[in-house]
C-alpha cells in the first residue's frame, strides 16, 4: 500500500521520481546500502561494481541503487513510446539471497501501489546470461497483468567464477513500472516531478531532446575510428592495471582495472550500434570483453572486499 501520509507529489503512482524514492526507501528499510549510480556509462545496472564484483567472494552484501543504463542500439529518435537508448534501472542485490526474497519483492510492488488483490503478478521463467560479463543465473521475468516489470535472478556465475554464496538480484525497469502505475501509454508523458499545471515536468521535458540527439550520435555520428582506438586503449589499460596491481596473493587495483572493462563494453555497444562490427567480429569482441571481466573478477577475489585474508 502507498503510504497515505505522502503528499500528492511524492506518491509513486503520480511521480516518476517518487517511484524511485519509494523503492530506495523500501530497500533501505531492508538494510540495503543505498548507493548512487556508478559514474560511468553502462548497459545495465549489473555492470556497477556493487553488483558484478560484490557478487563474488564470501562476504555478505546488500545494496540498492538507480543505474542509468545506455543501450545505444535501442535509440528511436524519441519516436517510439517504449524504447529508449538511455533509461533507468533500479537494482537490488542481496548476498546471500534471503529465503523470503520473493516476498520482499512483492512487498516492494505493494509499496509503489500495486494491489496484489487486483493485479496478476507472475514469475515466468527467464534465464539470465551476460556473455560479456561471463555471467549467468536462473530466475524469472516478473509479470504484472501480462507486462514484464522486473527481472529476478539468482546469480550462479559472474566473471566466470562460481558464486558462493549466491546473490539474488532484482532489476526494476523504472520507466515501464512508472508507466504502469501512472496509467500512461507513452514514456515521454510520464509525470516526472509529481506536480500539476505549470509546475509539472514530464519525462519528455527531461529526456526527449537527449533521446533525439543521442540517437543521431549512436547511429550516424559516433566517431568509429576513435571508438575502435578507445576499445583497444581500454583493453590495454585494463591489462596494464591488472598487472600493476597484482602482488601475488593480493591484488591492489581491481576496481580501476574493472573501470576499463566497463569502458570497453560500452565502446563495443556504440560500435555495434554504428553497424561497423560484422557478425563474426561481434563474437570476438564479446570474448575480449569477457576476458577482461574474468581477469578483473579473479583480481577482486584477491582484495579485502573480495574476501582475501
Amino acid at each position: 500500500m502507498i503510504d497515505p501520509a505522502l503528499p500528492a507529489h511524492m506518491r509513486p503512482d503520480r511521480s516518476f521520481q517518487a517511484l524511485l524514492l519509494t523503492l530506495q526507501r523500501f530497500w533501505a528499510d531492508q538494510g540495503c546500502v543505498v548507493l548512487q549510480p556508478y559514474d560511468m556509462e553502462v548497459g545495465a545496472g549489473t555492470f556497477h561494481p556493487a553488483t558484478t564484483l560484490r557478487a563474488l567472494g564470501p562476504k555478505p552484501w546488500k545494496a540498492a541503487y538507480v543505474q542509468p543504463s545506455r543501450r545505444p542500439k535501442d535509440g528511436r529518435y524519441g519516436e517510439n513510446p517504449n524504447r529508449l537508448q538511455h533509461y533507468y534501472q533500479f537494482q537490488v542485490i542481496l548476498k546471500p539471497s534471503p529465503d523470503n526474497l520473493q516476498e520482499l519483492y512483492l512487498k516492494s510492488l505493494q509499496a509503489i501501489g500495486v494491489d496484489l488483490g487486483l493485479h496478476d503478478v507472475r514469475f515466468v521463467e527467464d534465464d539470465w546470461e551476460s556473455p560479456t560479463l561471463g555471467a549467468w543465473g536462473l530466475g524469472w521475468e516478473c509479470w504484472c497483468d501480462g507486462m514484464e516489470v522486473s527481472q529476478f535472478t539468482y546469480f550462479q556465475q559472474v566473471a566466470g567464477i562460481e558464486c558462493a554464496p549466491v546473490s539474488g538480484e532484482l532489476t526494476y525497469g523504472l520507466e515501464r513500472l512508472a508507466m504502469y502505475v501512472q496509467g500512461v501509454e507513452n514514456v515521454y508523458d510520464l509525470n516526472f516531478n509529481g506536480r500539476e499545471g505549470a509546475e509539472k515536468i514530464s519525462y519528455g521535458d527531461v529526456f526527449l531532446q537527449a533521446e533525439q540527439e543521442y540517437s543521431r550520435h549512436n547511429f550516424e555520428a559516433a566517431d568509429t575510428e576513435m571508438l575502435l582506438e578507445q576499445f583497444r586503449m581500454a583493453e590495454k589499460a585494463c591489462h596494464k592495471y591488472l598487472a600493476f596491481g597484482d602482488k601475488g596473493e593480493r591484488h591492489e587495483m581491481a576496481l580501476p582495472a574493472y573501470d576499463q572493462c566497463i569502458k570497453a563494453s560500452h565502446v563495443f555497444n556504440l560500435l555495434d550500434a554504428r553497424g561497423v562490427i560484422s557478425v563474426t567480429e561481434r563474437q570476438s569482441y564479446i570474448l575480449r570483453v569477457r576476458e577482461l571481466a574474468k581477469a578483473c573478477g579473479a583480481a577482486w577475489l584477491k582484495t579485502a572486499a573480495g574476501g582475501a585474508a
Partner: peptide, 23 residues
C-alpha cells in the same frame, strides 16, 4: 489465463493485458 480471483472481477487485469497487447 490469470492466476487470480481478483477483487474487481478481473477488470484491472484485463485492462493491463489489453495495454500490453495494444503496444
Amino acid at each position: 489465463i490469470s492466476n487470480l480471483v481478483a477483487s474487481d472481477g478481473g477488470a484491472a487485469i484485463v485492462a493491463g493485458n489489453e495495454r500490453v497487447i495494444r503496444a
